[in-house]
Write a protein that binds this DNA or RNA. Structure first.
Lengths: 209, 209
DNA sequence: GCAAAAATTAATCGAATTATTAAACAGCAA
DNA sequence: TTGCTGTTTAATAATTCGATTAATTTTTGC
């Protein structure tokens, strides 16, 4: 049997591991399954990563990185506030559309190892904190100009994430309960992008007296 | 060593199991831990429940039941629509406040056994479907009267659940990232109740031309 | 009180799964 | 050729964890 070079095989293992860990979480993922999916032998996992933990670590770190770099990319930019928020919601949504299982991975991993949170924070905490401060300043400014109600950046972020993330955690339940076909579901989800933008922007509207 | 009677011990085991399953999910929960937390020997779990699966089943069914009976209680009632929606959001929120780990339990269980969804549907699907239809009729009515924008009951439900549920799935991350003290976090969460009501109600406002 | 049943425990078994090693071999570069 | 890297197969050690068993204590009914 011909062989691949180092990086090809390693990448194949990583891809397989990502697939399995995303769908099962750490505890229910079997290294044998990962090996099988990667089309390699179990011993190769050991050769490249030594332990299941190491392999998971590699996958997890990569995913967290992609979340952060994608999901907060826009907020730091210099764009008009409303435009920026709309883009941010859409960007988050698109990311989730291509990575629907990532929220589950992160949540279940934090349930497994609560200390993971500190771990992540050390990598990206500073960055996130700066973005929040900048956003808060812009929100305050817009509020002073009477464009939006008074709102904390934190609450706005929670609103955005809530609207976007939960759908991808629960759509299997939804599909079943509403007897949607797969294509119906796809339409429903596609539709939620606009709905989410609307909700988030509406939540900012100045109070009516 | 003095002993408890049957129901006391059984209940102690159930309580311990609930605690552990809620925090870890099925796969990561260890029967030894449950036994230790209940203050009994591991073999007693088998004496009362025979298998880990049975024990989980008891906990899970109970939780699902409480979700359904609490969380959709108001929507069926005859109350003015806006009032009803506000109450519904608050009721969901209060439930989550007392049961913050339930969403994680349900989501992780469905990831483990996808067929669980059908299971739950058979118990409560009919009920939920009726509530959705009733709600849709009321929404259509209100739209005709120009009070709200056109919206599907399903989208409204997703909005409500999104706003309420996600917070409880991610607050550990939030707390860490924002360096909130426990009491700060408590305040923030308490505050979200009003924020969620506002968001959901705002999302219904008639479109501006 | 006493015998039978119920409750409980300690000890360990067995299955599943992960980690590890050994031996062999193919491809390739020096 | 020689030697190195990547890879495979095969086997097995180690571990984890749920399940079982057999013995012990407690409760209950008579």
């Amino acid at each position: 049997m011909p062989t691949n070079n180092h990086t090809d095989t390693e990448q194949a293992i990583l891809n397989a591991a990502e697939e399995v860990f995303l769908n099962k979480g750490f505890a229910m993922a079997k290294t044998v399954d990962i090996a099988k999916l990667a089309g390699v032998n179990q011993a190769l996992l050991h050769y490249y990563f030594r332990t299941k933990d190491n392999l998971f670590e590699a996958v997890f770190a990569h995913k967290v990185q992609s979340v952060i770099s994608t999901v907060f990319e826009v907020l730091g930019k210099d764009i008009p506030l409303m435009e920026k928020i709309r883009m941010q919601v859409e960007l988050q949504f698109d990311f989730l559309l291509s990575n629907p299982k990532v929220p589950f991975l992160i949540i279940s991993e934090i349930a497994r190892v609560p200390q993971r949170v500190e771990n992540i924070k050390q990598v990206v905490g500073k960055h996130v904190q700066q973005i929040i401060e900048k956003l808060q300043a812009e929100l305050d400014e817009a509020h002073r100009e009477g464009k939006i109600r008074k709102i904390s950046a934190l609450n706005l972020l929670v609103n955005m994430l809530s609207q976007n993330v939960l759908l991808f955690l629960v759509y299997p339940i939804f599909q079943s309960f509403t007897n949607m076909s797969d294509s119906d579901l796809k339409k429903f989800i596609a539709n939620r992008k606009q709905e989410n933008v609307t909700c988030v922007l509406n939540s900012l509207k100045a109070d009516e007296s």
